[in-house]
């Protein structure tokens, strides 16, 4: 089994900030908007380096989404930055009408997604955003797993013309994917080859999946691990190819069970290759305050739960 090194801990949001700065240096048509969370989004360096291309909006996310659409009309590529909840639920109609339906080239970049923002609690822990955003026609949805992947994704979405939701997180987590990797929008990554079960994972659950795969190998269970960073459009070919070999799948994500990556996979399999599936996701509940690993453990989105679900799904084959 391929082993990934996770000693270096870095925030995914820092990957976004570093790439945004790089984009600003390369392209004069990159602009950034932030709703009073510049430091939290790692946008400070961009704001200092390109003050004329940085728009401090204040705590007015609805206005920010409209302004981003207006800047896109003017030929700029706007990157908006705020927490995931304020990037989606708070401004859903603005995104729907002025960005998705109006087909604007806006990159909605959302930090502090999921439970792992930690101590701020459920008001800030968005577990519904993937579902909301993937329901919008024409919206690309990306959830990255580490610093390097977030960096690469940020560069890649600037090259793509169309609305994108880029979701990342708050905590420092293992930075295990390659530096300077190519990021192919809509293409999954085969991280580990295996034959007994396919684990399809996204975001912070990718590292948990790799740990689970390593643990399961000691029991003689061979896991294939696929990282889906682009949830919409989904890399159907890669998933179908893997599941047709392994015969079962466990999906893993830091999101509500309803509306997330797991449901996209279930829809795919039910129409093209019906096979047993188990879900690692937050089970239709709000989060709470706590440290990020405490929350992942309590809400069963961790290595331990992955191992249990793998055992269960293999029995159902």
């Amino acid at each position: 089994m391929k082993i990934y090194k996770g000693e270096e801990l870095k925030e995914t949001r820092a990957g976004f900030g570093a790439a945004l700065l790089e984009l600003g240096k390369k392209q004069e048509n990159i602009v950034a908007l932030c709703a009073d969370l510049t430091g939290s989004l790692s946008m400070t360096k961009f704001s200092e380096t390109f003050p004329e291309r940085f728009f401090q909006i204040g705590i007015a996310e609805a206005h920010m989404m409209g302004m981003a659409a207006g800047l896109a009309i003017g030929g700029y590529i706007p990157f908006t930055g705020t927490f995931a909840n304020f990037s989606t639920a708070r401004v859903y109609d603005q995104i729907r009408q002025c960005i998705a339906y109006s087909e604007k080239n806006v990159k909605i970049c959302a930090s502090h997604a999921g439970l792992t923002l930690g101590e701020d609690g459920a008001t800030h822990q968005s577990l519904e955003d993937i579902g909301m955003m993937k329901m919008l026609p024409g919206m690309m949805v990306i959830n990255t797993c580490d610093f390097n992947q977030t960096y690469a994704a940020t560069l890649a979405i600037a090259k793509y013309k169309g609305p994108v939701y880029l979701r990342f997180g708050r905590p420092a987590v293992p930075n295990f994917t390659n530096k300077d990797q190519d990021f192919h929008l809509g293409k999954g990554l085969l991280l580990v080859e295996g034959k007994d079960v396919t684990i399809v994972c996204t975001g912070h659950l990718v590292w948990e999946s790799l740990k689970a795969a390593k643990g399961l190998l000691r029991e003689g269970v061979s896991c294939e691990v696929i990282n889906i960073h682009t949830i919409k459009p989904l890399d159907e070919e890669l998933i179908l190819k893997s599941v047709s070999k392994t015969g079962c799948v466990v999906s893993a994500e830091e999101h509500n069970l309803w509306g997330g990556l797991g449901e996209s996979i279930a829809r795919l399999l039910s129409t093209k290759l019906p096979r047993a599936q188990e879900f690692v996701a937050v089970c239709d509940t709000f989060g709470e305050s706590g440290k990020h690993m405490e929350l992942m453990n309590k809400y069963n989105i961790d290595q331990k739960t992955l191992i249990e679900k793998v055992r269960k799904v293999i029995k159902r084959k």
């Binding site: 409209g66 981003a68 659409a69 207006g70 009309i73 003017g74 700029y76 109609d93 009408q97 002025c98």
Partner: peptide
């Protein structure tokens, strides 16, 4: 250049366009 109908959104778009 923009969809409107759900009210209250056009001024933000116009301001973004003005900044552009």
């Amino acid at each position: 250049r923009i969809a409107s109908g759900s009210l209250g959104q056009g001024m933000s778009v116009a301001i973004g366009s003005a900044q552009a």
